[in-house]
Every structure is written in structure tokens, then in C-alpha cells.
Simulated assay, not measured.
Amino acid sequence: MSENALFRVEDLVASYGAVKALNGVSLSVAEGSICAVLGANGAGKTTLLRTVSGLKRADSGRIWLGDTDLTRCAPERLARLGVAHVPEGAGIIVELTVEENLRLGGLWRSDRAATLSSTYDLFPILRERRNQPASNLSGGERQMLAIGRALMCRPRILLLDEPSLGLAPMATRQLMDLIRQLCADTGLTVLLVEQNANSALSIADEGVVLNLGTIAVSDTADRLLSDDQMRHAYLGF
């Protein structure tokens, strides 16, 4: 898809038993851009992110970040190499405070204080609630916390799995705008898995549509949004 890509997946295959959840997936994402990964339930979207982040072992294929082969790296090694994953449901620890959650994201970094300060600059509401239990946050604020915690490791690429899940339309719009602004301000690269295709494509530069573990369509976000036949066939709107 993208020339001079920061991130590349080449012929990726991943299985659960006899079922191939990913079957020869290839894509690339330019530095500082957003690639939306779309498709119905069971298309392989979450498996793609789990395989990239080391939570699922690939059967074959390659995953690259710049010139670094990530394919067989453990999750903790990937975090140090610049891969951050925000799973579906955010995964924050509600018993901890907002700041304790954030600090967990950068435990191994020597510049934790500076990184924490810059994260609060990105999410002022988290600074206001830094000493509150994460259980007190709204759904949208929990997603901000999950993204902020991921940013504490200063990633080169951020993997977001269904960040709008369970959010009201206004909160979804605010979150998507925040993701777009984050990329514009920091040069972060984002691989965004979303069921809400319209919202995802509204902020993405490019998009791919997965169907039963393979890429059915790959194009710019604008062209995907304007392709009525494709949208009706694969995205349901």
C-alpha cells in the first residue's frame, strides 16, 4: 500500500487449529499515517493485531518495523522496539489510580517523568484525575487512559483494537479526532481496527478490508468511503 513504509506485513499466516484466521495478509503503513483495518466479526482483524504484538505466533510470513524483523519477538521485546498495543476493552486496571496505570506503561524507561508530563499534556483530563481510581472514569476517559498508558513507552506504531467499542457517538467522534491529532502532532503511526468503519475511515489515510482472513480491498480512505459497492458488500453501510 504505502511507499517508504515504516511498518510492513508480508504474507502473514496465523491459525487457530485447522482454521486460518489470517491467510497471506500483506499490508504496509507509512510513518505518521493511520491505516484502518475493517471487516465483519471473524474477519481476522483482532488476530492481525495480536500477531503483530506477539500475543499470537505467526505460522509464516514476516512483520517489519523499519528494518527490524519483529516476527518472532516476545511482547516485552516489541514494546522496547516501539510497538504498543491497546486491546479491545482498553485493559486498564480499575483498582489503580490514573497515574499508577500510566506509570505501568513506562516502567522500563529512564525518562518516565518527562514522558508522564507529555502524556498529561496530550490528555489534560487525565492530569485532573491523576489521583482518582480508574474505576471512576467514563468509557471515553478509560480509552484515553489506555492510549496514554501505551504512549508511555514512546512507541513508533500504535495498535488500536476497537477503541470506540461501547462509546456514545459524541465520545466516539472526540476519540477519533484525538487519534488524528495525535498522529499530526507527534508523527505516530497507527494501525486502527474498527467495526465503526465510517468513523475509522473519516480519520484514516488508508484502509484495508479483511474478509475471512484475506485482504478483500485495499485503497485510500477517501476512495473506500466513496465506493458504494464495496461498502455495501463488506462494511454494511
Rank of each mutant, 00 (worst) to 15 (best):
M1H: 07
M1V: 09
M1D: 06
M1W: 01
M1Y: 04
R8T: 04
V9Q: 05
E10G: 03
A18I: 12
V19W: 00
V19M: 07
K20C: 05
N23K: 12
V25M: 10
S26Q: 15
S28R: 12
E31R: 15
E31F: 04
G32D: 07
S33Q: 13
S33E: 14
S33A: 07
V37G: 09
G39Q: 04
A43W: 03
G44T: 05
K45Y: 06
K45G: 07
T46F: 01
T46L: 00
R50V: 02
T51W: 05
L55C: 03
K56R: 13
R57H: 13
D59F: 03
S60T: 12
G61T: 08
I63Y: 10
I63T: 10
W64A: 09
L65W: 03
G66Y: 05
T68F: 00
D69L: 02
L70Y: 03
T71S: 11
R72F: 01
R72G: 09
R72L: 08
C73I: 00
A74Y: 05
L78A: 11
A79Y: 07
H85K: 09
A90Y: 06
I93W: 14
L96W: 13
L96K: 15
T97S: 15
E99S: 12
E100W: 14
E100N: 13
L102A: 15
R103I: 12
R103Y: 11
G105C: 11
G106W: 08
L107M: 11
S110C: 05
D111Y: 07
R112L: 15
A113N: 15
A113M: 13
A113E: 15
L116M: 14
L116F: 13
L116E: 13
L116N: 14
T119R: 13
Y120R: 09
I125L: 12
I125P: 02
L126V: 11
R130D: 00
P133L: 06
A134H: 09
A134G: 15
A134Y: 07
N136Q: 14
L137R: 05
L137Q: 09
G139V: 01
E141L: 09
R142Y: 00
R142S: 02
A146V: 08
I147D: 10
A150H: 05
A150S: 09
L151W: 10
M152E: 07
C153P: 02
C153R: 12
R154E: 15
L158E: 06
L160K: 01
E162W: 00
E162P: 00
S164L: 02
L165I: 00
G166T: 02
L167Y: 05
L167S: 04
L167P: 01
A168W: 01
M170C: 01
A171E: 02
A171P: 00
M176N: 00
R180S: 11
R180G: 06
Q181R: 15
A184K: 12
A184Y: 00
T186I: 01
V190M: 08
V193F: 01
E194R: 02
N196H: 14
S199E: 12
A200H: 08
L201G: 11
S202E: 15
E206Q: 14
N211E: 13
L212M: 10
G213K: 02
S218D: 09
D219E: 14
D219I: 04
S226H: 11
D227W: 02
D228V: 10
D228K: 13
D228Y: 02
Q229M: 05
Y234I: 03
Y234E: 03
G236F: 02
F237W: 08
